[in-house]
């Protein structure tokens, strides 16, 4: 089975973030980045499916030059090759424009399965994979907690609320987004890191993929983001101060007066 895994480089979850000058995104200099945590589970799932049979795992990422780092991580962890959409024309897009670019790159691979993280930890829009599925003409399923190969395709258990699962059969090729907790992602080994240096990383531009630059990046976007700001603080609660013991006593008093459970 040939599997594409879409991955994104996102700011480290502990990074101190600031709003950029035109208030459309964060300042992305001087902070650390990481592989989107959801995507680690998608990569692991792809590697497990490959290892259960045979095939190839191709990691694809759209992002600036620095995003090569997350593709290196994928290659070191076991992906066979990578495609990095780093051309300037691809950058600054909305989910629609990003899905257009990813779709063009993925068509060159002709995969049986496309796996993505359920959402990216930075914008948490949770829609690019589904748009991608429509562009590729593939069925989709979101929030997978289990993926099993069947005779006709795959059986996916989608996570519902309150610990329920919706089980659905899909023909292949298909696009599936993966929830955290579906597996235990592995880490790259020293051997894997060495091997990654010899693996292919392509960087096609719009012309190589046969797409018009006006269809991707900022030019191809239909959703505009603006006025990024710290949300207005809600009227927060009372802040308790004092020694640990004083705070504990004050908490007991508040709980007793306000809840009726003590």
């Amino acid at each position: 089975m040939k599997i594409v895994v879409c991955v994104k480089q996102v700011p480290d979850s502990d990074a101190a973030l600031a709003v950029n000058a035109d208030r459309t995104w964060i300042v992305d200099s001087g902070i650390n980045f990481e592989l989107n945590p959801y995507d680690r589970y998608a990569l692991e799932e792809a590697l497990r499916i490959k290892e259960a049979g045979e095939g190839e795992v191709v990691a694809v990422s759209l992002g600036p030059a620095r995003a090569a780092q997350v593709l290196k991580t994928c290659l070191a962890t076991g992906a066979d090759r990578a495609i990095h959409l780093k051309d300037e024309a691809f950058q600054g897009g909305d989910p629609w424009a990003n899905a257009q670019a990813l779709a063009a790159a993925i068509r060159t691979v002709e995969p049986d399965l496309v796996l993505c993280g359920f959402q990216a930890n930075d914008d948490t829009l949770a829609q690019t994979p589904v748009l991608l599925a429509e562009m590729l003409g593939m069925p989709h399923a979101t929030g997978a907690m289990k993926i099993e190969k069947t005779d006709t395709g795959v059986r996916v258990a989608r996570e519902l609320e309150a610990d329920r699962r919706e089980v659905v059969d899909l023909p292949l090729p298909a696009v599936i987004t993966v929830q955290t907790g579906i597996n235990e992602p592995r880490y790259a080994s020293i051997k894997g890191i060495m091997a990654a240096k010899r693996k292919e990383m392509k960087t096609p531009g719009p012309a190589d993929l046969g797409i018009d630059p006006s269809q991707v990046g900022a030019a191809g976007s239909r959703l505009r983001f603006f006025d990024l700001a710290v949300p207005p603080k809600k009227e927060g609660g009372e802040v308790l101060t004092g020694s640990t013991e004083e705070i504990a006593v004050a908490l007991v008093k508040r709980i007793r007066e306000n809840t009726g459970v003590l």
Binding site: P11, S13, D123, R222, L223, R224, F226, D227, L228, V230
Partner: peptide
């Protein structure tokens, strides 16, 4: 909507 784990909010508009 909110972004970055609720640290920021952002406004958006859609063409179409």
């Amino acid at each position: 909507r909110l972004m970055f784990n609720g640290k920021f909010q952002v406004k958006m508009s859609l063409e179409g």
